[in-house]
C-alpha cells in the first residue's frame, strides 16, 4: 500500500497532556424537563469536528479546486497569497515562533488540520458563514495547507485524510489544565 509521506498514522492521538480528563460524578436528575433529541436533530445540529476527525462529513477537495474558491471567497480579507489583510494572515510563519517576531498562522501555529475544516465551515466566509458546501470547505482547507507547503498539489482532503495531516506545530502546545485550573497559578 502506498502511503503519502505527509500522513501520520497516529494523528488522531492527542499530544501528551492534552487529552483525557476525569469524568466527574454527576447526580442524576429526574425532573422530566426537556425533550429527547432524535438522531436526525443531532445530525443537523452538530458541526463540531474534533482532532480525531469525528463528524467530518462525506465529500472531498483538492488544492486546485480550493484556489478557485479561495480567490473568490477568501482573498479579499486574507490576501491573494494568504498574507493577511482585514482577516488574519494564513501563511509565511513557519519557523518564526521562537524568534523576536513570531508569526502565528495556520502553517506555523495551528496544531491540527481538522481545525481548518471545522472553523471554515462554522464561521467563514465572514460575510456569509456556513454558505460553502462540504466539498468547498475540504477544497479551501486543502489549498491553505498547500500554500503552507504542508500537503502536495495533488493531495485529496476528505474525512479520512484530513485528520492524518501532520501539522508542523503539532507538538507545540503545553496543556495548563493540571497547573492552572483551580489555583490559577
Amino acid at each position: 500500500m502506498c502511503t503519502p509521506k505527509w500522513f501520520v498514522f497516529a494523528a488522531f492521538c492527542l499530544a501528551p497532556g492534552l487529552g483525557l480528563a476525569a469524568t466527574p460524578q454527576i447526580p442524576a436528575r429526574d425532573y422530566d424537563v426537556g425533550t429527547p433529541a432524535t438522531d436526525a436533530q443531532m445530525k443537523a445540529w452538530d458541526i463540531i469536528v474534533g482532532p480525531e476527525g469525528r463528524n467530518l462529513p462525506d465529500g472531498s477537495g483538492t488544492p486546485v479546486a480550493g484556489k478557485a474558491i479561495y480567490d473568490q471567497q477568501c482573498a479579499a480579507c486574507h490576501g491573494d497569497a494568504g498574507q493577511g489583510g482585514t482577516g488574519p494572515r494564513l501563511v509565511g510563519g513557519i519557523g518564526s515562533l521562537a524568534t523576536a517576531k513570531p508569526i502565528k498562522d495556520v502553517g506555523s501555529y495551528w496544531p491540527y488540520a481538522t481545525t481548518l475544516f471545522d472553523y471554515i465551515r462554522r464561521a467563514m466566509p465572514f460575510s456569509n458563514p456556513q454558505s460553502l458546501t462540504n466539498d468547498q470547505v475540504y477544497a479551501v482547507s486543502a489549498y491553505i495547507l498547500k500554500m503552507n507547503g504542508i500537503i502536495p498539489d495533488d493531495a485529496v482532503m476528505d474525512r479520512r485524510t484530513l485528520p492524518m495531516v501532520e501539522m508542523p506545530n503539532r507538538n507545540g502546545f503545553v496543556s495548563m489544565i493540571g497547573a492552572s485550573v483551580v489555583t490559577g497559578k
Partner: peptide, 18 residues
C-alpha cells in the same frame, strides 16, 4: 449557547489553538 457536546478530549477549536 446552542450546543453542549460531551467528549473524551477537547475539540481543538480555532479559539483554543490559534
Amino acid at each position: 449557547l446552542r450546543h453542549l457536546e460531551l467528549r473524551r478530549g477537547p475539540a481543538m477549536s480555532k479559539e483554543e489553538t490559534a
